[in-house]
C-alpha cells in the first residue's frame, strides 16, 4: 500500500447527531484497488463514508484526496473533484425518470457529447435501464434501483466510488450480480471503497480490508489474509 494513495483518512472522528460514531480512524485506499470496510451495524461504516463525501463534518482529523485536503469542503465540491458516493438505500430520485436520474449523475459534466457517450455506456452495461428509461426511477425494483444508482455514479466519471451496502435488501441472486458489477467496475479502472455487511463476499472481491468496531479500526490487512483470520471468520463470517 505504499504505491499511489488516492484517498487517505488521518485520525478522522465524527459524530452522528450526539453519538460519536467514528473515533479517530486512519485509512488508506490505493488507486485502482477495491478496499472494503467491514463491521457490525452501528460500527461507523456509513458515517465514515459520509464524512469523506462531506455530508457529515469531521470533528477532528483530515481527509486527503489525491493529496489535497478536502476535509472542510462542501459536499458538492468534493463530488466535483471525483469522489462519488453511492449512499445506502440507493436514493433514486422520485418523480424523475430513469434517464433524468442518469443525466443528473453527470450534472458536473459540461460536455454534452461526453454525457451522451457515458449514457450509451451505462445503457450498454445495464440494458434494463434503457428499457425502462422513461419510467419513474422510484418505480423500479430494488435490484434495478441499485443498477440505476451505480449507473448514475458512473455518469459522473468517478475517480473513486464510495459504495455503501450495494447488496442491501436484494435477493441472493441479485447480491451476486451486484458483486459482479462491482468487480467489473474495478477492472475497468474505478477505485472503490466498499462498505458491506456481507463480509465473506466483500473479502472475495477486495484487495484490502479494514474492520471497524464501535468507531475504531480493530483490524486491517490484505483481503486474503483477513479471509483466513480465525477471529474474523468467527466474528463476521459465521458459517
Amino acid at each position: 500500500m505504499t504505491s499511489d494513495i488516492i484517498l487517505k483518512l488521518e485520525g478522522i472522528a465524527s459524530a452522528y447527531g450526539k453519538i460519536d460514531a467514528v473515533k479517530g480512524i486512519d485509512l488508506e485506499v490505493a488507486r485502482g484497488q477495491i478496499v472494503t470496510l467491514l463491521g457490525a451495524n452501528g460500527a461507523g461504516k456509513t458515517t465514515t463514508l459520509k464524512t469523506i463525501s462531506g455530508i457529515v463534518r469531521a470533528k477532528t482529523g483530515r481527509v486527503l484526496f489525491e493529496g489535497q485536503d478536502i476535509t472542510s469542503m462542501p459536499a458538492h465540491i468534493i463530488a466535483r473533484a471525483g469522489v462519488v458516493h453511492v449512499p445506502e438505500g440507493r436514493h433514486v430520485l422520485r418523480g424523475l425518470s430513469v434517464r433524468e436520474n442518469l443525466e443528473l449523475g453527470a450534472f458536473t459534466v459540461k460536455d454534452a457529447t461526453l454525457r451522451r457517450d457515458r449514457l450509451d455506456q451505462v445503457f450498454a452495461q445495464f440494458p434494463i435501464l434503457k428499457t425502462r428509461a422513461n419510467s419513474d426511477g422510484s418505480l423500479l425494483s430494488g435490484g434495478e434501483q441499485q443498477m440505476l444508482a451505480i449507473g448514475r455514479a458512473l455518469m459522473h466519471g468517478p475517480k473513486i466510488m464510495l459504495l455503501d451496502e450495494p447488496s442491501m435488501g436484494l435477493a441472493p441472486k441479485l447480491v451476486l450480480e451486484t458483486m459482479k458489477i462491482v468487480k467489473r467496475l474495478n477492472e475497468t479502472g474505478t477505485t472503490i471503497l466498499l462498505v458491506e455487511q456481507n463480509a465473506r463476499l466483500a473479502l472475495k472481491l477486495a484487495h484490502f480490508g479494514y474492520v471497524l468496531e464501535s468507531g475504531e479500526i480493530r483490524l486491517k490487512g490484505e483481503a486474503s489474509q483477513l479471509r483466513s483470520d480465525p477471529s474474523i471468520v468467527q466474528a463476521y463470517l459465521g458459517t
Binding site: 455530508i55 458538492h76 424523475l96 443525466e103 450534472f107
Partner: peptide, 17 residues
Amino acid sequence: RAMRAVAVDKDMSRLMG
C-alpha cells in the same frame, strides 16, 4: 432537473455535485 432533485433529496443532490 437539479431543482427537482433538490426538492426530493438534498443530500443526494449534493453527492451529485
